[in-house]
C-alpha cells in the first residue's frame, strides 16, 4: 500500500513488501484515557468484587485446561480440585457484585457475557499454562498473596464479602501448601526441573507487580467496609515467596519491566483467546441448563 493511502481498516502489514512502521499508540491517541469499559467505574464496591472474582475465574479456567494432561493422575485431580475451588470462589464474589450492583445480572452473566476489556483480572492469571513449572510458579506467586489477603478481607464489615473471603482463605492455605511443595520439589530436584522452574519464575516475575496495583477503588472500599488495600501486603508476600525460593535453591528474580493495566481492562492477547473458548458454549446456547 502506498504511504499516502488512507486505509479504512487498521493496517495489519499482511502481504506488504516491507514491514509497516510501528507507531507507539500514545503518539496517535495521546495519553490513554479510561473509557466506559476501561477505567474508573461508577461503583467502586462492584469493581472491587469483580477484580477478586475475575482473578479466580480466569486462573481457575487456566488450571482446568490441565484436566487430563497433568503429569500423573493424582496431580491431575489436585489441579482440577484447585480449579474448581477458584471457580467456586469466583461465583461467590460475582454474587456479591451482582447483589451490590442491583441490575439483575447473575454470576453466569459476568463470566460468559462480558468481553475481555470488561475483565478486571491481573494479567498474571491469564498467561498461558506453559510447562508444569510455569503453571506451578504462577500458582505459587498468586496464591502467596491470596492467603494473607483473604484473611484480611474476612474481617471486612460486609458480611457476604467477608464470608466468601473466609471460605476462600481456607482453600488458599491448602493451595499454597500444594504449590510451595511443588516449587521445592522442582527447584531442588533435577537440573532440568530447576532450570525450568527458574525460567518460569523469571518470566512471570514482572507480572507480579500488578498484583499490588491499587487505586481509588481500593481506597473507597477500604473506607466503606474495611477491606484490605493490597499494597499493605507486599512485604508479607515477599517474605513468603523469598523463603520458599531460598529453600528451593532458586534465585529471586528482578523485574526490569512491569506491565500493568489488567485491573482497568487492558490485557495481554492471551485473555481474548481464552475467553473465546471459555464462553463459546454459553454464547451458542444462552441460558442452557444441564
Amino acid at each position: 500500500m502506498a504511504p499516502d493511502a488512507t486505509p479504512d481498516e487498521p493496517e495489519t502489514g499482511a502481504g506488504a513488501p516491507v514491514a509497516p512502521r510501528i507507531v507507539p499508540v500514545t503518539t496517535t491517541l495521546g495519553p490513554l484515557r479510561p473509557t466506559a469499559t476501561s477505567g474508573q467505574p461508577a461503583d467502586a464496591f462492584v469493581e472491587y468484587c469483580l477484580r477478586l472474582a475475575d482473578d479466580r475465574l480466569v486462573l481457575g479456567h487456566r488450571l482446568s485446561e490441565w484436566c487430563g494432561h497433568a503429569p500423573i493422575l493424582e496431580e491431575d485431580i489436585a489441579l482440577a480440585n484447585i480449579a474448581l475451588d477458584l471457580i467456586g470462589q469466583a461465583e461467590a464474589f460475582f454474587s456479591v457484585a451482582a447483589e451490590a450492583e442491583g441490575r439483575g445480572r447473575t454470576p453466569d452473566d459476568f463470566a460468559y457475557f462480558r468481553d475481555d476489556v470488561a475483565f478486571r483480572n491481573a494479567m498474571l492469571c491469564e498467561l498461558p499454562n506453559g510447562d508444569f513449572g510455569v503453571t506451578i510458579a504462577r500458582q505459587f506467586l498468586w496464591t502467596a498473596l491470596q492467603v494473607p489477603f483473604t484473611k484480611a478481607l474476612s474481617a471486612a464489615s460486609h458480611a457476604q464479602l467477608a464470608g466468601a473471603a473466609a471460605k476462600a482463605h481456607k482453600e488458599h492455605v491448602y493451595h499454597l501448601r500444594h504449590a510451595a511443595d511443588w516449587v521445592l520439589k522442582l527447584g531442588d530436584g533435577t537440573p532440568e526441573s530447576h532450570a525450568r522452574v527458574q525460567a518460569a519464575l523469571d518470566g512471570l516475575w514482572p507480572y507480579t507487580d500488578e498484583l499490588f496495583y491499587a487505586d481509588g477503588v481500593d481506597a473507597a472500599v477500604a473506607a466503606l467496609v474495611g477491606a484490605p488495600v493490597v499494597t499493605a501486603l507486599r512485604e508479607d508476600w515477599a517474605r513468603t515467596v523469598e523463603a520458599v525460593l531460598r529453600q528451593a535453591t532458586l534465585s529471586v528474580p528482578v523485574a526490569d519491566w512491569t506491565p500493568a493495566g489488567g485491573r482497568l481492562g487492558r490485557h495481554t492477547e492471551h485473555l481474548g483467546h481464552m475467553l473465546a473458548e471459555m464462553q463459546s458454549l454459553a454464547r451458542a446456547h444462552p441460558g442452557a441448563q444441564w
Binding site: 493424582e74 496431580e75 485431580i77 489436585a78 480440585n81 491448602y174 501448601r177 500444594h178 511443595d181 520439589k185
Partner: peptide, 11 residues
C-alpha cells in the same frame, strides 16, 4: 510423605 498426604486429601 507430604505429597502422599496432599494426594490422599485430593483423591
Amino acid at each position: 510423605a507430604e505429597q502422599a498426604l496432599q494426594n490422599a486429601r485430593d483423591v
